[in-house]
Amino acid sequence: MSTSGDRTSREQDAVRILLIISAAATPLPGPVSEDPALADAIAVVETQVKLQKLDFWVRNPDYLAATLLDDFEVSGEPYLLELAQEILESEEPEVRRYPMMRFLFGAWEPLDEALSVLRSAGLVVRRKQGTTSRVTQHNFYLTQKGKDVAERVVAAEPVFAYYADRVKLVAALTEGHGGTQLKQRQYLNDEYRNTPIGEQIGSVAGQTRSRLRSLRGGLAGHVSEGS
Rank of each mutant, 00 (worst) to 15 (best):
V167H: 03
R127L: 13
L212C: 04
F160S: 02
E11N: 10
A220W: 01
V223P: 01
E77M: 11
L215F: 10
L68M: 05
T47D: 09
E157W: 02
E92A: 09
A39Y: 00
S210N: 02
A66Y: 10
S133F: 06
R185T: 08
A150T: 11
L88R: 02
Q144R: 06
T208C: 13
L188I: 03
D112S: 07
I197A: 10
Y79V: 13
R213N: 12
I42L: 07
I21G: 14
V170I: 06
D55F: 12
I201M: 03
R119V: 08
D70R: 05
L188D: 06
R166W: 00
S120L: 11
R134F: 02
L173C: 10
G5Y: 07
G5L: 07
P61M: 10
V124H: 04
P31A: 14
V170W: 02
V223W: 01
R96K: 15
K50A: 09
P29F: 13
S4Q: 13
Q129M: 09
R127V: 15
G198H: 08
L38V: 02
T67G: 08
L104H: 02
L118P: 03
M100D: 15
R96V: 07
L212T: 02
K128S: 12
D13V: 12
Q129H: 15
E73W: 01
V159E: 00
P78E: 12
L54M: 03
E157A: 05
P27H: 08
V149F: 11
Q12I: 09
V117K: 12
K128F: 13
F103S: 11
G146A: 08
N60W: 08
L111D: 10
Q85V: 00
A171E: 06
L80I: 02
G178C: 04
D70T: 08
R59W: 13
Y162K: 07
A14C: 09
R211N: 04
P31E: 14
R16G: 01
A155C: 01
G176C: 15
P27N: 06
W108T: 09
T180Y: 15
R211S: 04
N194W: 01
G76Y: 12
G221L: 00
F56M: 05
F103V: 12
L38M: 01
L80H: 07
E92F: 05
R166S: 00
L28D: 13
L118Y: 10
D13M: 13
L173T: 11
V124C: 10
F140N: 03
N139K: 04
A150I: 11
V49T: 13
P78I: 05
L118C: 07
K147I: 01
G122I: 04
G76Q: 15
A150F: 03
G130Q: 03
T8Y: 05
T8C: 02
A25D: 08
L212Y: 08
M100C: 11
K147C: 03
N60L: 11
D70E: 10
R126W: 09
R127W: 15
